[in-house]
Simulated scan of single mutants.
Amino acid sequence: MAAPINYRHLYYFWVVAKEGGMGRAATRLGMAVQTVSAQVRALEQSLGHALFRPAGRGMALTEAGVAAMTHADQIFQLGEQLPAAVREAATGQGRRLAVGIPDGLPKLVVPHLLQPAVDGTGVRLLCHEDEFDRLLGDLALHRLDAVLSDRAAPPNPNLRLYSHALGEASLAWFAPAALVKKGGKRFPECLADMPLLLPTGHAAVRPRLDQWFERHGFRPHVAGEFEDSALLATFGRSGMGAFPASRWSRAELLADKGLRLLGDTPELVEHFFLISAERRIQHPLVQKLVQGGREVM
């Protein structure tokens, strides 16, 4: 059986790697350089591999060092979260749920996807919006509990991530009332005469939209493309053009008296996933999200 890791040695290694050198690490730790160096060497001896190599006047991580750093990052970032988690549990502030929301995910469907977890009391929801790949990296480092997405996580040998289907929703088309009054054709032919607002390639549904236009034989007049779906809907409401949105967003969009429903496109479907860093989900709120998704599929 392997000897247990000395976490003090691991911590000194982690600081050296973060600071980029023994001297800067020693200053941060308030210790002598020789002491820090000895602690790192002790960790290397216990692991049986060199973790640093010379690089010019400084030092760089070896392949073994990169692997050690990946695990050390997870360990000490979780450690930084521990006081807050204990305080919240002890004071009854409720369970925390940190969720990543990619730029391309339709924002109007996010409340629907999160509803199973936030329906109860005492849930503290933290939503982080960023690029999809960066959110997956944060998830792998356990900075997030889950990522919601319109696509499954791509295969990556460096990231152990698991995709759980939450459901699917067809698209409908909406337009400002002023544009609808000008048009004389029926749906979907009327879209050929309207300025359109579309998601960029950040959204998984964009290629399906382009194929749909081709099948109907018209080239869309694209007035705007948006990475952020909430911004897309905002410009649509302002009168800039017609736009597609999930059927789950219908009630909210039609509450705006300036918008009209042009028509449904059941053949255009968005798929939604919850991505976790573990195959068997332990977080009870994330379990609720997956179970809730199965019930609506």
Rank of each mutant, 00 (worst) to 15 (best):
V222A: 03
G224D: 03
L161E: 02
R28F: 11
M69T: 01
L268G: 05
E129D: 01
R219A: 15
G122I: 05
R96I: 10
G137S: 11
W173P: 07
S149A: 15
K257I: 00
D145K: 04
L10F: 05
V110E: 05
L274C: 12
Q211S: 14
A233N: 00
V36H: 01
S246F: 08
G201C: 06
T234G: 00
Q115I: 00
L285P: 11
F13Y: 14
K107Y: 00
Q39N: 14
A60D: 11
L29I: 08
A204W: 00
P106A: 09
P155Q: 09
P266R: 11
L82K: 08
E252W: 05
R96T: 14
A242G: 10
V86W: 09
R237S: 07
A255D: 12
G236W: 03
Q34D: 15
H71K: 09
A140P: 00
I275A: 13
W212E: 08
T35D: 01
A140Y: 01
K181H: 06
G65Y: 01
L29S: 06
E63H: 11
G56F: 06
Y7T: 14
Q211T: 12
K288E: 12
G217F: 02
A223P: 05
G184R: 10
L47A: 13
L29E: 06
L179E: 01
C190T: 03
L159K: 14
E19Y: 05
H283T: 08
S229E: 05
L141Y: 07
E80W: 02
P116Y: 11
A175P: 10
A17C: 02
Q282H: 12
A178D: 12
C127T: 15
G183P: 07
I281N: 09
S163P: 09
Q39E: 13
L105Y: 06
L136S: 01
H216V: 09
A230M: 04
E225M: 08
E252F: 02
P157S: 03
A204H: 12
V99W: 08
G21P: 01
A251G: 03
G122C: 05
N158Y: 13
L114F: 05
G239Y: 06
G21E: 06
L47K: 10
E227T: 10
R143K: 11
M31W: 04
E19N: 06
Q282F: 07
A85G: 09
Q93E: 09
R151T: 09
A72F: 10
T200S: 15
A204P: 04
Q282L: 12
R95Q: 15
V222Q: 06
K288L: 14
G292C: 07
R219K: 13
T62S: 00
S246Y: 02
H221N: 08
L198W: 07
S249A: 15
L274E: 06
G65W: 08
S149Q: 07
L10G: 00
L29Q: 08
G292K: 12
Q115N: 12
P116W: 01
F226K: 09
N156D: 15
E225N: 03
H283V: 11
P106W: 10
V180G: 02
F174M: 13
A169V: 07
A89V: 02
M22R: 08
M240Y: 13
D119C: 00
V269Y: 05
G58D: 03
H49M: 09
G100V: 05
C127V: 14
V66D: 02
M31Q: 13
H9T: 00
L171A: 13
G137T: 04
